[in-house]
């Protein structure tokens, strides 16, 4: 299976949210990573066939998804970033409704919904109105509905937003379990969500691909650019002015800072092993300037 974004451009009026974007997905987990406003949601929506690109096309195995129409939508599961529910529906009824829209039969849906409520830890809330759900519970309901039709292509926009750490881990495990024969596309700005499960990470900035690669290759590329520096309150100020600073640990008077810098910032600086978080800071920090 090959899902290909081919020269996709999306304009909102004059503003270009996605510029001539091309990429290819095959079975496995992909993470779209980028700062706010980078264009992740725009790309995800185009992939989910809810937004038409201004230019370019999306092809599945060489067939334009616009031509495939419902045949394409039949293959996907989608979790939007801003995911709403009908507040006076129970979780079960909501899932039955979405299952019907996905073309599943009643008996099929019943069984599948049981399973998914179990998986997403919502079983006891099956007959509770979704209007009373917390943000995290709604998100889990969203994850459940995306999986209803056992999609071959799973598209999720910030799936873990609002999940507590335990649920986050459950979600990650779930994904690595089901992603064998699927294309899974996630967008996030939480690096740890995708660091270990994704086959490839796509760094997006201002609607364009900045860099792609496995998390290993991306972290390898900035080897020798991450440093640990010990300093105090006064030193911290100058460091923050001069460098991209990651985590800061305070320990009494001593302050331990993590710095991204092309060169050794200070004689006392120690080289650190880069993580995906450093990669994020390395590529996206200038943006805030």
């Amino acid at each position: 299976m090959k899902l290909e974004i081919r020269n996709v451009t999306k304009k909102y009026g004059k503003f270009c949210a996605v510029k001539n974007f091309s990429y290819e997905f095959t079975e496995g987990v992909y993470g779209l990573l980028g700062p706010n406003g980078a264009g992740k949601t725009t790309i995800i929506r185009i992939l989910a066939d809810v937004l038409n690109p201004t230019d370019g096309s999306v092809m599945l195995n060489g067939e334009d998804i616009k031509d495939m129409d419902y045949r394409y939508r039949n293959l996907i599961g989608y979790l939007p970033q801003d995911f709403g529910v009908y507040k006076n529906f129970t979780a079960h009824r909501f899932l039955m409704y979405i299952a019907a829209l996905k073309g599943l039969s009643k008996t099929e849906s019943q069984k599948r919904i049981e399973e998914l409520l179990e998986i997403t830890n919502l079983k006891e809330y099956s007959n509770v109105k979704t209007g009373t759900f917390s943000g995290g519970m709604k998100r889990r309901l969203g994850i459940a509905q995306a999986l209803l039709n056992d999609p071959k292509i799973l598209i999720m926009d910030e799936p873990t937003a609002g999940l507590d750490p335990k649920e986050r881990v459950r979600f990650r495990n779930l994904l690595s379990e089901i992603s064998k024969d699927k294309i899974v596309i996630l967008s996030t700005h939480i690096v740890s969500d995708i660091e270990y499960i994704s086959k490839e990470i796509v760094l997006i900035k201002k609607g364009e691909i900045l860099k792609t690669g496995s998390s290993e290759s991306l972290t390898n590329e900035i080897k020798g650019k991450v440093w640990k520096v010990l300093t105090d309150e006064n030193g911290l100020k100058t460091i923050e002015e001069r460098f991209t600073v990651g985590n800061i640990f305070r320990n009494g008077n001593k302050i331990e800072t993590r710095i991204i810098s092309e060169n050794r910032p200070d004689d006392s600086a120690e080289a650190e092993i880069p993580t995906m978080e450093d990669v994020f800071l390395y590529y996206f920090d200038e943006l805030s300037e």
Partner: peptide, 9 residues
């Protein structure tokens, strides 16, 4: 081959 995906990757 005009597609820039090809050019990139």
């Amino acid at each position: 081959y005009k597609s820039n995906y090809y050019k990139n990757v």
